[in-house]
Structure formats: structure tokens, C-alpha cells
Design a protein around this nucleic acid. Structure first.
Length: 576
RNA sequence: GCCGGUGUAGCUCAGUGGUAGAGCAGCUGAUUUGUAAUCAGCAGGUCGUGGGUUCAAAUCCCUCCGCCGGCUCCA
């Protein structure tokens, strides 16, 4: 079924839900009820506060409306007429919507006594909606503005067939199983605690192993690409944040006092990198300079937005600042973009959604530089054959930017790399270089990340693989399961050989049965479980069980080592 | 921050005003085990926090905190 058809189905479902709510409750004022990916919602303003039990009641009512097979009738009326109609009905939000509509004629849809303003189109009658489910309740500000009243939103989903609905509901379950917060605990990767503080992750040994693998990869690749590594302090005096402007714009920072001096915890690494730049006179001959730091920053995110590793208060950016000549912008952006895609691909992300944000109404810098930088970003995208969308006017005031969102195994999008040109900070910090003309010129600054934040990326990575990491990323690559105590010696020999080859292995020494050891290793999503008993010890071989269930007997240790090393070196994501 | 939900053992959850429970995990013991859970026993909780109502509160009310689903914002 094509997308438009589904859209119509869901839109009609939203209308049926609105009718059901209107019939069930008094004084309901309708907000808007659009379709969204995989479903629909409708916003309501009413005295009654919905509870999860109400969803069932509303669904029941919707079924009645569907059973009656009420026709949906389109009418076109003038804006004025519509305004009168909705004013009379006390539909204040619809009247508010009408204020913003310029067309002289609007369409309304009637189904029985229920009327809603709507562009349409709709199904012919309510009976054509068959497979739907109301999912959850939420609060939402009218028109998304927190100065407006908050409405109650009901989310639902609707599909053409029962099979598709069931598939979708199963997918929701699958998503829940892959939730990085759940896997983080189950795989003993990280945890967060009320005692430590909200939005602050603590890495456990396995999580730290995974993080170091990611960080080592980043360091190596940055080195290859001509970045120089720097380190900056976590706290810096408030004055530098005044120079950067973060202080005045009330950036959500943490400030505190040391012996009468105000300090702030860094929410960004740029000022320190600029400081490195300014520590000596710079010549055009030495540009571009690329300073890289795995910089841990803290931002005071509002409590309601925190979410596992994906939205935290303390995180580490794979942050770099490139200082270059205006005519180097293009090559630098091209290189940065290639780098970002290379890294994402290495970690198994093959699909992206790329956004180019251009000059907003209020901006700093010259028209010419904006033009040049925006063109550079475009050219870099096109040279990389990346399809992208332009978000006109959505750039930050200091420069245009590229945002890359990655698509995971379940088709969800995650904020990843960003590349931003900055005309503001070089100005504010009065950065200069000496040109061939022996005069002082302003360098251009590019902020860029490859993965974004290590925390967020790890969260996305955990969900992408559902915790079943490819060999090179798996915190534990091999679990050795001796059948009885008498095999512990042989197991230790194997462990030592694996460890000597930089393979991350453990022995399951518990006095448990083999089925129990296998089950535990399987639940931990360990790539290989090596079972050793009398037969193996005698023949000096291994029985190797892969995570996907296949069992190989009589394997030589050397073969296994080579196989694992090969997978690690190629960063293969082939299942074992 | 705002709206709604929610908080009981390490984890998953039961317990609606009258003596805090289960499974898994943990510990102890027995079992020496061949590809997704061997058996038994033991231990573990000021029921998120502070206050209130009551003869009596995990249970009812209020405060604060955390978490979950959204809104808004972002790496």
C-alpha cells in the first residue's frame, strides 16, 4: 500500500478518535490531529484528565463509530463562515488556526454530527478503518509553544491489514528489547543512578572496554588525517565564556565560585582550542590547523529531556576545530565529511539523513563569507554523492552547518556528526594570521564532530546491534566453558593464548552444567563460546559455538585465533 | 521546565487500611555435568524522600526526588 493511502487511512482514524472523544466527554476543544510516521495523534483540551484506562474506552467508542460506517462528507465554505461555525461551537483552537490561514475558502469534513476543519482527503466512510490501536498519552503545548496551554495528546497507529498492525506492534516490542538502557544493564556496560545524579553515566568495565575501542579508533583515524591532539581543562573562568558569548546568551552552563572568581564548567571545547591557536603568531603557511580533543563537556539539560545515553548532562564529544584560510574551507569540509561517513560506515551505519542549514534572518559575518561557506558545504555533499535536504534559514547565527542523522537497523534516526562553519568566534576572540602580504587576516573556524558524542553514539550503536556487537567491538569475544573442573588447566592454556593475541576472553569457572554456561554466554551475546572437555583436551582442539547457534567440533586454537583476528582487523560485521 | 504515568529485594514483578511476597540473580551444600536454566537450603527490603490522616499506612492525602511516555531544546 502506498504512503498516501496509509496517510489517508490514519488521518481518518484521527478523526474517528476525535469523534469518539467528543462523544464520550463534555466540553472537548479539539487541537490538531495529523498523521505521523506509523500513525496519528490528536490533541484535546478538556477538563477530564485521560488515564490509560480511558484509551480502552475510547477505542471501544471508535469501534462503534466504525461499525456505523458513517460517511465522511467534504464541504467547502468561506473562511468567514468557518470562523462563525467554529466560534459558535466554542472550538477556540480551530478559530486560532483560521487566523493563520490565508485562503478565502477552507474545507471541512462531516461525519454524522462531528465536524472538523481539515484539508483532507479522507476515506469515504468510517467503516473503512479496521486495524488500529491507541498507544499512549502525552502532554503537548498548543502549536508547540511552551507559553501556550498544554493539551492532552493521544497517539495511535492504524494499518491496512491485521498483519501489518501486528508486525508494527511486534516491532515496538523489538525496539523495547533493544533499548540501550535495558541492554546497558543486562550486558553490564554502564549505569546511571539517582545517587550519582540524573543524566550522568557511569561506565562499567565492559562498557569502558567498548568505549576505549571507539576512542582508540577515533584517535588513530584523526592522527592519519593530520589532526593534532589537545587537552583542555573542564572548568574555565567565566570571563572566557563572556568573550565567547555563551555567558550573555545564557547557555545552559554550570557556574560556581572559586576564591571570589566565577568559573564555569565547559559546555564546549572551542575556547580552549582557540587559546591554543592564539598561543603564538600564526602564518598562512601553517594553516590549516586542526585541533582534536575527546572533550568531556557538561550542559544543564532540562530534567524532562534526559534519556539514557542519548540525552545526558555530561558527555564527551569527538570534537575538532579547524582553523583555515577562506579558500581552504571547501577542501576541509570535504575531508571532514568523508571522514565522518567513513567512520559511520565502519561502525555499521549505512544509511543517513543529511540536512544542510542555511543563513537565518539574524546572522553575523559577511554575506560573501556565508555564500562561500554554504557553497563549500553543498559542494562537499555533492562531491560525496550524498543526497541531502536544505533547511533554509535554520542555520545557527554564526554560520551554516551540515547535520548527519544515522539510520539504525530498525530505521530510526539518530543525531550523529555535525560540521559547522563559524564566522563569529574568530571575530570575538580577535584571531588573526599573517598573510603573504604581511598583513593580519581573520582565519575561518570549522567546528566538526565525527560521531557527535561518544555517549550518544554508543547508545545508538547498542541499539543498532541489539547488543550483539561485531567481533571487533564485543567487550568479551570468547567465553571458555570447561565441562568439568579437571578441564580448567586446559581452559587456562587457551585463555592465555587468546589473551596473548589481544583477544578478549574469559573462563566460565562456575560449577555449572554446559547448558547453563552456554545459555549465559548466549544471553550476554558473546560471539564465541568455546566448550572444552575430555575429547578436546586429548586431541588439543576446541568445540566452538557461534552466537547464532552453529557448532563446530575439533577446531584448532590457531585457526580460531586467526579467524577472530581477521574479523577484528577487517572490522567485519558478519555474524558468527 | 511543562503535562501524564510510575517508584516494593541487585533484576522482573505480585501485594487497595490490619504480621512485606514470588521467580531469577547472590551465598552455602550436594551434583563433575557435552551446546539456551541440576537440585536443596539460607540470606536479602526503615515498600524513593519528608510530612500528614488513622488505633493501624507499601496501600489514603500533600511535598520533594528519580525514572518512563511526550512537548520544547540539543551532541
Amino acid at each position: 500500500m502506498d504512503k498516501d493511502e496509509l496517510d489517508i487511512l490514519r488521518h481518518t482514524s484521527a478523526h474517528i478518535m476525535a469523534q469518539a472523544v467528543t462523544e464520550l466527554y463534555k466540553d472537548v476543544r479539539l487541537g490538531i490531529g495529523p498523521t505521523i510516521e506509523d500513525g496519528f495523534y490528536y490533541d484535546f483540551d478538556l477538563d477530564h484528565t485521560f488515564t490509560p484506562d480511558d484509551l480502552e474506552k475510547i477505542e471501544q467508542k471508535m469501534r462503534e463509530i466504525i461499525k456505523k460506517d458513517i460517511p465522511l462528507v467534504r464541504e467547502e465554505i468561506s473562511r468567514e463562515e468557518a470562523k462563525k461555525l467554529f466560534e459558535k461551537a466554542g472550538a477556540t483552537y480551530k478559530v486560532d488556526l483560521l487566523q493563520k490561514i490565508e485562503e478565502p475558502v477552507v474545507s471541512i469534513y462531516r461525519q454524522g454530527d462531528f465536524v472538523d476543519m481539515c484539508r483532507g482527503p479522507h476515506l469515504k466512510s468510517t467503516g473503512r478503518v479496521k486495524h488500529f490501536k491507541l498507544l499512549n498519552l502525552a502532554g503537548a503545548y498548543w502549536r508547540g509553544d511552551e507559553n501556550n496551554p498544554m493539551l492532552q495528546r493521544i497517539y495511535g497507529t492504524a494499518w491496512k491489514t491485521k498483519g501489518e498492525l501486528d508486525d508494527y506492534l511486534n516491532k515496538l516490542e523489538e525496539i523495547a528489547k533493544r533499548d540501550h538502557r535495558r541492554l546497558g544493564r543486562e550486558l553490564d556496560l554502564f549505569s546511571m543512578s539517582e545517587d550519582i545524579g540524573p543524566g550522568l553515566a557511569v561506565y562499567h568495565p565492559y562498557g569502558t572496554t567498548l568505549r576505549f575501542i571507539i576512542e582508540d579508533f577515533l584517535k588513530e583515524e584523526h592522527k592519519k588525517r593530520g589532526y593534532q591532539f589537545v587537552i583542555s581543562p573542564h572548568i574555565m573562568k567565566a570571563s572566557i565564556w563572556k568573550t565567547s558569548g555563551h555567558y550573555q546568551m545564557q547557555y545552559p552552563m554550570y557556574f560556581f565560585d572559586i576564591e571570589g572568581q566565577e568559573y564555569g564548567i565547559k559546555p564546549m571545547n572551542c575556547p580552549a582550542h582557540i587559546h591554543v591557536y592564539k598561543s603564538q603568531p600564526r602564518s598562512y603557511r601553517t594553516l590549516p590547523l586542526r585541533f582534536f580533543e575527546l572533550g568531556t563537556v557538561y550542559r544543564h539539560e532540562r530534567s524532562g529531556v534526559l534519556h539514557g545515553l542519548l540525552r545526558v548532562r555530561g558527555f564527551t564529544q569527538d570534537d575538532a576545530h579547524i582553523f583555515c584560510l577562506p579558500d581552504q574551507i571547501e577542501q576541509e569540509i570535504l575531508a571532514a565529511l568523508e571522514f565522518a561517513f567513513f567512520a559511520l560506515k565502519t561502525f555499521g551505519f549505512e544509511e543517513y539523513h543529511v540536512m544542510l542549514s542555511t543563513k537565518p534572518d539574524k546572522y553575523v559575518g559577511t554575506e560573501e563569507n556565508w555564500e562561500r561557506a554554504t557553497e563549500a558545504l553543498k559542494t562537499a555533499l555533492e562531491d560525496n554523492k550524498v543526497s541531502y535536504e536544505v533547511d533554509p534559514g535554520e542555520g545557527v547565527f554564526y554560520g551554516p552547518k551540515i547535520d548527519v542523522k544515522l539510520k539504525d537497523a530498525l530505521g530510526r534516526l539518530w543525531q550523529g556528526p555535525t560540521i559547522q562553519v563559524d564566522f563569529n568566534l574568530p571575530e570575538r576572540f580577535d584571531m588573526v594570521f599573517y598573510g603573504a602580504d604581511n598583513a593580519q587576516h581573520r582565519p575561518v573556524m570549522i567546528h566538526r564532530t565525527v560521531l557527535g558524542s561518544v555517549e550518544r553514539f554508543m547508545g545508538a550503536l547498542i541499539e543498532h546491534y541489539g547488543g550483539a556487537f561485531p567481533m571487533w567491538l564485543a567487550p568479551v569475544q570468547v567465553v571458555i566453558a570447561p565441562i568439568a573442573d579437571r578441564h580448567l588447566g586446559y581452559a587456562t592454556e587457551i585463555l592465555n593464548e587468546l589473551t596473548a593475541n589481544d583477544i578478549r576472553a574469559e573462563i566460565d569457572e562456575r560449577r555449572e552444567t554446559i547448558p547453563a554456561k552456554i545459555r549465559d554466554a548466549q544471553m550476554r551475546k558473546i560471539p564465541f563460546t568455546v566448550v572444552v572437555g575430555d575429547k578436546e583436551e586429548e586431541a588439543k582442539t576446541l568445540a566452538v559455538r557461534g552466537r547464532s547457534g552453529q557448532d563446530r567440533r575439533g577446531v584448532r586454537l590457531k585457526e580460531l585465533v586467526l579467524e577472530i583476528k581477521e574479523k577484528v582487523e577487517t572490522k567485519s560485521s558478519d555474524e558468527v
